[in-house]
Computed example of a mutant assay.
Amino acid sequence: MTSTKTNDAARHEARLLWAANPGLFALLEAARRTGPIARVPRLGWVVTDPVLARHVLNDHVRFGMNGEGGVGHLWTQLFGDEMAQFFGGATHAEIRTRARDLFTEDAARALVERSQGRTHTALAARLAAGAAVDVADAARVLSGRMVADLLGLSAARSDGAHRDLFGAGERLARLAMGTTASTGLDPAVIAKARTIVDEITAAVPHAYRTAGTDTLLGRCREMDLGLPLSRGLATLLVIAGTETGATGTVRTAALLHDTGSQRALLDDASLMGNAVREGLRVAAPAPVVGRHVSRDATVGGRRLRAGDRVLLLTYRATNDAGPFDVHREYVPETRQLWFGGGRHLCLGAAVARVQVARMLETLLSGGRPYRIVSRRAARRVLVPAYAELRVRLG
Results as ranks from 00 to 15, higher is better:
99 A>D: 10
225 L>H: 06
136 A>N: 07
344 H>P: 11
278 E>L: 15
158 S>A: 14
210 T>S: 12
208 Y>D: 09
88 G>K: 02
44 G>W: 01
385 A>S: 15
360 L>D: 08
260 G>Y: 08
50 P>W: 05
70 G>V: 07
209 R>S: 15
44 G>F: 05
177 M>P: 09
262 Q>L: 07
302 R>C: 15
85 Q>C: 10
54 R>Y: 11
245 G>N: 14
92 H>R: 07
13 E>N: 04
324 F>S: 01
259 T>D: 05
347 L>G: 05
104 T>G: 13
326 V>S: 03
119 T>N: 10
385 A>V: 03
230 S>I: 01
355 Q>S: 13
90 A>N: 11
332 P>Q: 02
302 R>L: 14
10 A>H: 05
210 T>N: 08
57 L>V: 02
263 R>S: 06
213 T>D: 15
232 G>L: 02
232 G>T: 03
220 C>E: 04
9 A>H: 07
293 V>W: 01
104 T>E: 13
176 A>T: 15
52 L>A: 09
209 R>N: 13
207 A>G: 10
101 D>P: 05
327 H>M: 08
241 G>N: 03
263 R>C: 01
78 L>K: 11
48 T>I: 02
351 V>K: 02
10 A>F: 07
192 K>L: 15
196 I>D: 03
243 E>R: 02
139 A>S: 15
302 R>W: 08
374 S>Y: 02
246 A>F: 00
124 A>M: 12
237 L>V: 06
116 Q>T: 09
195 T>A: 10
329 E>N: 12
289 V>E: 03
61 V>M: 11
356 V>K: 10
329 E>P: 11
75 W>R: 01
335 R>A: 15
282 V>C: 10
381 V>C: 12
232 G>I: 00
186 D>K: 04
12 H>G: 10
108 A>D: 13
115 S>K: 01
275 A>E: 11
105 E>N: 13
271 L>I: 12
375 R>L: 14
206 H>W: 06
336 Q>S: 12
202 A>S: 11
346 C>P: 11
5 K>Y: 12
33 R>F: 12
170 E>Y: 00
208 Y>P: 08
373 V>H: 04
90 A>I: 06
231 R>K: 13
201 T>I: 06
225 L>W: 04
315 Y>P: 07
359 M>V: 13
276 V>E: 04
176 A>E: 06
218 G>F: 07
335 R>P: 00
77 Q>E: 05
385 A>Y: 04
93 A>N: 11
265 L>H: 08
81 D>I: 05
190 I>Y: 03
197 V>C: 10
318 T>H: 11
87 F>V: 09
132 A>S: 15
368 R>Q: 15
351 V>Y: 03
315 Y>N: 11
210 T>H: 13
43 L>D: 05
131 A>K: 14
136 A>L: 07
380 R>P: 01
331 V>C: 12
284 A>E: 01
165 L>V: 10
234 A>L: 00
188 A>G: 15
46 V>F: 03
200 I>P: 09
166 F>I: 00
190 I>R: 07
284 A>H: 00
340 G>E: 10
232 G>C: 01
41 P>I: 00
169 G>H: 00
4 T>I: 14
287 P>T: 03
43 L>F: 04
266 L>H: 09
199 E>W: 08
33 R>P: 02
